[in-house]
């Protein structure tokens, strides 16, 4: 069984938001909403500054509070560890929205809760998620962490990395190379 996740090279990311548009067109995300976004973090005093740019989205956690708190089972862990929402099981109670430390979920105008799916429909066809395949800086990698030979596994062996808010205990599956 695969365990999908992403590795994002913050050194290469220029924060262009191509991943955001690609997600929007690929998944027809309604206007005003986004499943992924950019974080620009700057530390220091001019001109001695350090900047990290990250593309962020649902972390498809191993310990997903959104799945645990869902009263109907609409939020679930699918094949490969992908956290998904089954639209016609979702009652729109927003407990999952409130439970996510990444604020990765939102209420779709049609009423159900929506979020990044890792482009599950593309992954099934053997393609990368839309955000990964569009990135002009090639800063995003998608793959199987259960396979020690996969590019994502190797990158984590070779490079320093961090995850977002690991202290929330959700075991996120997107890693940021620094």
């Amino acid at each position: 069984m695969a365990r999908y996740g992403m590795v994002i090279d913050t050194k290469k990311c220029v924060g262009c938001q191509d991943c955001v548009v690609a997600c929007k067109t690929e998944n027809q995300v309604p206007h005003g909403y986004s499943r992924d976004w950019l974080a620009y973090e700057t530390i220091g005093k001019f001109p001695k500054l350090n900047m990290e740019i990250r593309t962020e989205r649902c972390n498809h956690c191993d310990n997903p509070p959104c799945v645990y708190c869902c009263p109907t089972g609409a939020s679930h862990i699918s094949d490969g560890g992908i956290v998904l929402v089954e639209h016609d099981k979702c009652i729109g109670c927003k407990a999952c929205v409130a439970s996510c430390p990444y604020d990765a979920r939102f209420v779709h105008p049609e009423g159900y809760v929506s979020k990044c799916t890792f482009c599950e429909h593309r992954v099934k066809e053997g393609k990368d998620p839309a955000c990964v395949s569009v990135c002009p800086t090639h800063c995003m990698y998608f793959g199987d962490f259960d396979d020690p030979e996969s590019e994502v596994s190797k990158l984590l062996q070779e490079r320093k990395y961090h995850a977002i808010i690991p202290e929330a205990g959700t075991k996120p599956h997107i890693y940021y190379l620094t």
Partner: peptide, 27 residues
């Protein structure tokens, strides 16, 4: 930009001259 990212990955020395700390300056 694609090549710029390759240069970063290749560990090229990047020198940025700008009154503003641009994204490139961050690299």
């Amino acid at each position: 930009v694609q090549e710029f990212s390759e240069a970063i990955a290749n560990d090229a020395s990047i020198i940025v001259v700008d009154p503003r700390f641009s994204v490139a300056a961050g690299k």
